[in-house]
Design a protein around this nucleic acid. Structure first.
Ligand code: FES
Ligand code: FES
Lengths: 142, 142
DNA sequence: TCCGAAATATGATATAAATCATATTATGTA
DNA sequence: TACATAATATGATTTATATCATATTTCGGA
């Protein structure tokens, strides 16, 4: 239900949240080895997230990617939407021009509430919350 | 959340449910023009569904695709799963090896219920029910 | 029995997503 | 100030999805 890119980006950002802050940065090579995602691929993803200010980075020696307090409080939807757009999550399940209450497709009323609930989770859960579960050993990344 | 192919297949099958049965068949050309999906594309999809016995067909003159009573009572999940597989709907949202209650990823407990609800709709709604809504003008295909 | 209409089988092309590779720019440190 | 390290920018390649095209098989009707 999420693209590969989204999955990779989320894993990377969650990992960064656990292991970095303004004073502790982490290089792409380290990140990719820990979350087992191809280095060049995760590099591209993180560069993009950084450009959009969803994560932070500094270059040069001692540089790397990291997440600051502001970044950590972002909802996970911000990552997903940045990576793959939000349109596909709101467009009609049958591909009609637009998803419309007035002129709904036959699945609309049946599915729309569960879809909203799904999106609500993405939009109301912060990166920090997920990282918290990891730290508390309530969840795992592998 | 559904692939293009799934959307096209569902539209086609719903349309067939409204307009065909054992005695009334419909040619690909007619179908594609009504649901505005490229003819060669929908042809391939319907051929595949027919091979899997999710819809019916006869060839030669007066032939075409159609859905019989058995076909009509199938859940829409059968179409979706036939077209794009079911794995992506049950695999871990973060791409972990398997989606596991025992060793869940950090989004698992937050998202799994809304995902199940989504799948439940696909699995408990029949083609015939959707077509019924169309007939009753409670829903539309364009 | 022959013809044309239809699905079927098969494969070619185009577009998008995923993956890989590399040259460039910025920056801390010796 | 020069060097090494890291992100950045850019683009190439591979793979999957979507789309198009066509020759073959089946079958009803003249
Ligand atoms: S109109 Fe189809 S899902 Fe809303
Ligand atoms: S373990 Fe990730 S969604 Fe279930």
């Amino acid at each position: 239900m999420l693209s590969n890119s989204s999955k990779y980006a989320l894993k990377a950002v969650i990992y960064l949240t656990l292991h970095t802050d303004d004073t502790r940065k982490m290089t792409v090579k380290e990140i990719s080895s820990h979350i087992q995602v191809p280095q060049a691929y995760v590099a591209k993803l993180l560069q993009d997230l950084s450009k959009r200010d969803l994560i932070s980075s500094t270059r040069g020696p001692k540089g790397g990617f990291y997440v600051n307090e502001t970044n950590k409080s972002l909802p996970i939807s911000s990552i997903v939407y940045a990576v793959e757009g939000r349109k596909q999550f709101s467009s009609c399940l049958l591909g009609l021009e637009d998803c419309d209450e007035e002129k709904p497709c036959p699945v609309h009323h049946r599915i729309v509430s569960s879809r909203s609930r799904f999106l609500e989770v993405l939009e109301k859960t912060s990166i920090a919350q997920l990282a918290g579960d990891l730290k508390a050993k309530k969840a795992f990344l592998q």
